[in-house]
Design a protein around this nucleic acid. Structure first.
Lengths: 333, 333
DNA sequence: TAACGCATGTCAACAATTCGAGATGTTTCT
DNA sequence: AGAAACATCTCGAATTGTTGACATGCGTTA
């Protein structure tokens, strides 16, 4: 492989001139530029980015920590991140952590050892979170929750959940069940708070007997439907607030197989607005997150931090959209 | 951030000794090793990998070109790749190409500019494929097709398809339809060849009126079911060979909604064995690819190439498993 | 002719590794 | 005992590809 030295020889100029011809062509006379370009072409020269990075003390690479790379919501966020990174000529290294903090630490090591310039963490930060020693690295949290101790871009989970439940109440529901994610998960905590807030506002008492825990998966949604079917009809909720779309879709499938008609007998709402959610039967009423925008904003924020600019805001709360489709209706009398 | 120089000062030894203490501790006396480690700890020293990579002329990083990062089959292959790479201390950069050759070229540039040491391409190679100028970079093709002009790890699509169709014939089917992927796709081409080979062996004539083109998506499978329903019953196939699971599941959904019972009225087979395929109703008869093994093998192969060893084999064809579940049965008389 | 601008060249710096050489200590042989 | 041979450990210096600060040389203009 040819180096800048070979080019300088072939073009009969100094190394510095070649370097300038590449990165600051305006500082080089047209005739030399021509010579240099000809030599570059002839030798098929490609600047060694490794050396460049080394010299400039930046890796031109950021890491995105993804808990689950197959999750469609994340891939959309990543798309937003990549768009911004690409404009800057920065590579995006996807770190599939599979919810393992060991793997997460491995990726953080990349930043500590200068192989990457910063990190975007795509998971909610929990209070006792030791995984990310952020003091030494540039990091941004995307699609997390309140109280993240470092810069973040997210939605207001509390208000979003509240809006959903407010809607259910407004169309006449009084007993509203919940299929929660894992109860320790910050998203679950925030969304449950929103749920409670809406109840309180309407003067409905919270009843933990119609709240069940899932794990955000399709199957846990299906299981949860059994939980509700075991409740005597008169005590059974007329609507169920699911903390994500996957569980909502699982629940719909479960209820349908037990002869519960959605939305006639039971209204169901989701959270996330997956691609599939508008096609399922019935189309799901849900909360749409601005996933791509979350990605873009968090990348922009990270680059500000890497550049050493103190960002004007260190917490961006982006607006959500509540989408009413066919899985909700007024309760049967 | 502290450098090796700071450590050498703190430990009162030379830089060379610190370097050895880290990478060849057995060559350093115990007393110096102690001093050095103490200094490293005190200064929180982390070796600058960028500098290391630069010196060693390797980036310790490989790129995996993925057409669609949300595809479960690919994520399993990636898991296999990551496992092997991790053992070697090499990072895996996921390049989501979204089937754009422009993006693919961007990632190849990483190898040309030494930011990565090699590439694993996760898509079938087509004849007129200009995207990967492999002459200059270490590259391996994974889960592609026959006639890939550079080292590859794959299954035998032709034989796999043949095995499926042989089975359908063996249980009594004589008219077997096809839901193909895009007809120019090498996978479609190979699988269709296997289909034809099985027909020929059984003395059944090929009939292109019961072959329809999809695009490997759920929706195209559903559409295809309409295509078959429009065929008069007596000319309609008794079994349909789908070129992947997604389309098979779409087709099952489509047929069921039109009152066609699977497998009583019609047998359906898939290809890939997605996680979901054993849970769908009826559970799908399909071809299981050794996805994780494909990942592992291709990573091992790539590392051999990077190390300059000429691999003993440049084409690995891994065995598949044909899994008979509930979506196939003997045809109705 | 001094001052200036422009194009180009020289050289140091970046952080780590590695080779050859030197220093020190240990064993073996006469 | 003294010297030679050897082993072990450590160090200095060169090396890697690129960049940017500074220097140089040349022609133009005040």
């Amino acid at each position: 492989m040819s180096t800048i030295r070979d080019v300088s020889k072939a073009a009969e100029v100094s190394i510095a001139t070649v370097s300038r011809a590449i990165s600051h062509p305006e500082k080089v006379s047209k005739s030399t530029l021509k010579k240099v370009n000809a030599a570059i072409k002839k030798l098929q020269y490609r600047p060694n980015m490794l050396s460049q990075s080394f010299r400039n003390k930046t890796a031109n690479c950021i890491v995105v920590l993804v808990p689950d790379i197959a999750n469609l919501f994340f891939t959309t966020v990543i798309k937003g991140i990549e768009e911004v990174a690409q404009k800057r000529g920065v590579n995006v290294l996807l770190g599939d952590t599979r919810d393992s903090s060991g793997r997460e630490l491995d990726y953080i090591k990349l930043v500590e050892t200068k192989q990457a310039d910063g990190i975007i963490q795509l998971r909610p930060y929990t209070k006792d979170d030791s995984a990310l020693p952020i003091d030494f690295v540039s990091a941004v949290n995307a699609s997390g929750c309140e109280n993240t101790p470092y810069p973040s871009v997210r939605i207001d989970n509390v208000s979003a959940a509240e809006e959903v439940v407010n809607y259910l109440i407004s169309i006449g529901h009084k007993r509203i069940g919940v299929i929660s994610g894992l109860v320790k998960n910050p998203h679950s905590i925030d969304r449950l708070r929103g749920y409670k807030r809406a109840l309180k506002r309407a003067g409905i008492e919270f009843d933990d007997r119609i709240v069940t825990e899932g794990d955000f998966s399709f199957w846990s949604g299906m299981n949860a439907s059994e939980f509700f079917c075991r409740i005597p009809v008169e005590q059974r909720p007329t609507a169920v607030f699911c903390m994500n779309d996957e569980m909502a879709i699982g629940a719909i499938k479960g209820f349908k197989s037990k002869g519960v008609s959605i939305p006639r007998d039971l209204s169901i709402t989701g959270f996330d607005d997956l691609e599939f959610s508008k096609y399922c039967d019935p189309a799901l009423t849900t909360v749409s997150q601005p996933a791509e925008m979350i990605g873009k904003k968090s990348a922009e924020l990270l680059f500000q931090i890497i550049d050493g600019e103190s960002p004007s805001q260190s917490e961006y709360v982006l607006p959500i959209e509540f989408i009413i489709r066919k899985s909700t209706s007024v309760p049967q009398p």
